[in-house]
Each structure stands twice: as C-alpha cells, then as structure tokens.
Amino acid sequence: MALVSHATREITCKIVYYGPGRSGKTTNLQHVHAMTPAARRGQMVSLATDTDRTLFFDFLPLDLGSISGYRTRLQLYTVPGQVYYNSTRKLVLRGADGVVFVADSQPQQLEENIESLRNLHENLIEQGTDVRDMPIVIQFNKQDLPGAMPFAELDDILNFRGVPSLAAAAVSGRGVFETLRSISELTLRRVARSLRRPIVASSER
C-alpha cells in the first residue's frame, strides 16, 4: 500500500516485477540501476542463488523527484519466478501498488507465461486484492530473440484485460524505462485518486 505522508509531503509506492523464471525481471532492474543517476537511486539488493536466479527478491529504491509538490519514491522489487518459490513470491507481493508482468516472448515459454499470470491473479486474490484495481502493465520481453512471438499475437493471448503492454529487450535496455514510466503513471494516478489530489506524472526519471 502506498505510503503517503502529508506532513513530510512524501509518497512511496511499491512496484513488483512479476513473471516466470528467467523472463528478465532482474534484468529490468539492473538496467534501471545502471542507467539512473546515483542521486536518484539507492543501492540495489539482490538475493540470488548461486546460479544467479532470484531466490527471494531484488530491490531497487528510486527517487522520482517532486511530483505536484510531493517527493515521490518508488521501490522496485522482483520476485523469484520458479513455481517452487511461491511462498516467498507471496511475501514480496504484499503491499504492491503496481505490478509489471514481464513475459518471455519465446514460444516455448508461452505456457510458463500463462501459468505465471494465473499465479499472479491467484496470489492477489488470496491477499484480498481486487485484481481489477491493481495497476498492471505487461512487458513482452526478449523481443530481440530469433523466433520470438510477435507482439500482437502475445498481446492477444496474454493481455485479456487490455492493460498497457509494451515490447522490450531488457538485456539491451530497450523498453525498460518505457515500462517503468507506464507503471509509474498508472500507479501514481491511482494513489492520486485515493488522495483525491491531481498528480501530474512528469517525465522526470
């Protein structure tokens, strides 16, 4: 749940990057970390296995600067993708204000994408969140790989709720900031609605 302090005029939102194993969630954060000026971000924390797969979460705090007079911070998290780690995935999902679903565009991963999306909905419902109220953006990652399914086809299959969707190749950075911007706007607009204040999301990163 977004932390809003009217006294100190600060807003902090939690964005969780979700998706099947190895779809590029950690890569998204690594790219954001690499490309964001040090003054605008904190240290990135990664709890990973010895094969570099997320074991618990990755965490990256960002400072978006002032939006409508409020100091706006984002906390980006990733979850472990493997089915096995569902318990830890649920923990990380708690209190999420927005979700980026990172899908793997390779055809052999289609089932994994569908299963992960189903798992996301299941976990949200279990924690009492109305899925329709949760800001979600879908990123079709690995569009650069040969044989990657076309955007339109993936969108047709996976984006049945018609949420904003983007193409990406996180490993080169393509689409990473666009995705972040999209989820930030959606999330902050929702926070603004609950505050009943207009918040204009600027292009500040």
Partner: peptide, 30 residues
Amino acid sequence: ASGQVLAQHGFVGRYHVMNVAALAAAANAS
C-alpha cells in the same frame, strides 16, 4: 542455500516442506 530439500523429519506433505524450504533459504539469504 537455494532451498533444495536434502532431508526432512516430521513434515506431513511435500507442499508444506516446499514452503518451509523456500522460506528458510530466503531467510538465510536475508
């Protein structure tokens, strides 16, 4: 350290073990 179960005693079902194993690995890493 990755949460793979090598041995267990006293657990009733595999999913219960799985949850504890994953969380234990996460707790240790944290």
